[in-house]
Design a protein around this nucleic acid. Structure first.
Lengths: 131, 131
DNA sequence: TGTTTGTTATATTACATATATAACACAGAT
DNA sequence: ATCTGTGTTATATATGTAATATAACAAACA
């Protein structure tokens, strides 16, 4: 499994799970229809509790990124990913504003900040051709 | 005072305080050397507890954005803001990665994401001439 | 029948958030 | 000296979140 947890981190375990799965989908490592480990097996692999994995999976299910079946297990959304909704735009801008302010205060120029954003996005989807 | 709290929000009060003060500095509403309300008076104005304001002020003090004196009170860092450290770059990139992944998964193109970042930054510092 | 799946329920521990009081040390004004 | 307002520190409490530990249930499949 491609997931690596930092149990010392201040960011919750279930958030780390959510982030890494989303990044997995964005990067193409996880493709629509691909199966994910069962709640129990992933929990055991990572040495964490069943409910922590369940919480992460459910959040992603509610966002429309995962589908959850009885016996089929958990798979990456095969019927089209959710689009850029108004709610998502708002949330994105709110978080970008916080980052932009912190960057501006430290003297990071507009071009550098924008370029940094572009670079991070590009690296994210760098090898969608192969995984 | 320019601070507005959303007590229903899931983001902690002290985080809202930190964010809005940083945005105040970035936008020029707060200039180096400018005084901030005392811990007690701001707490009373906002209808929150003294310690919540204290926590926010202390975080900003540790980041080097505020100075705290005995009787002089709290002022915006007059001796030069902290620069773009390696630690800050890492933190920024980590958070940008999370946002970029969420955006990419929803089909937001690289150019749109980068432009969104630039626009948010620009609006942040839009009226540094006067406020 | 038995196993594995997601799901739900309950309980417990640990930690973060926020509040409420209280007291302390320091600096300035009266 | 005394009072007042400042940041600071110390306790205590209430609430919510994060994470764990068990247990049980319903559905799908071999």
């Amino acid at each position: 499994m491609f997931i690596e947890l930092d149990l010392q981190s201040e960011t919750p375990i279930y958030t780390q799970l959510v982030d890494q799965i989303v990044e997995g989908i964005a990067s193409g490592v996880l493709q629509p229809g691909d199966p994910l480990p069962s709640i129990r097996s992933l929990a055991e692999d990572l040495g964490i509790n069943l409910h922590t994995v369940n919480k992460a999976y459910n959040l992603l299910k509610q966002e429309g990124l995962l589908q959850v079946h009885r016996k089929k297990g958990v798979i990456v959304q095969p019927d089209g990913m959710p689009g850029v909704t108004e709610a998502f735009e708002e949330k994105l801008r709110r978080q970008l504003r916080s980052l932009a302010a912190a960057a501006a205060v430290r003297g990071m120029a507009e071009e550098v900040f924008a370029q940094e954003s572009r670079a991070v996005y590009r690296e994210m989807i760098a090898n969608r051709g192969r995984g």
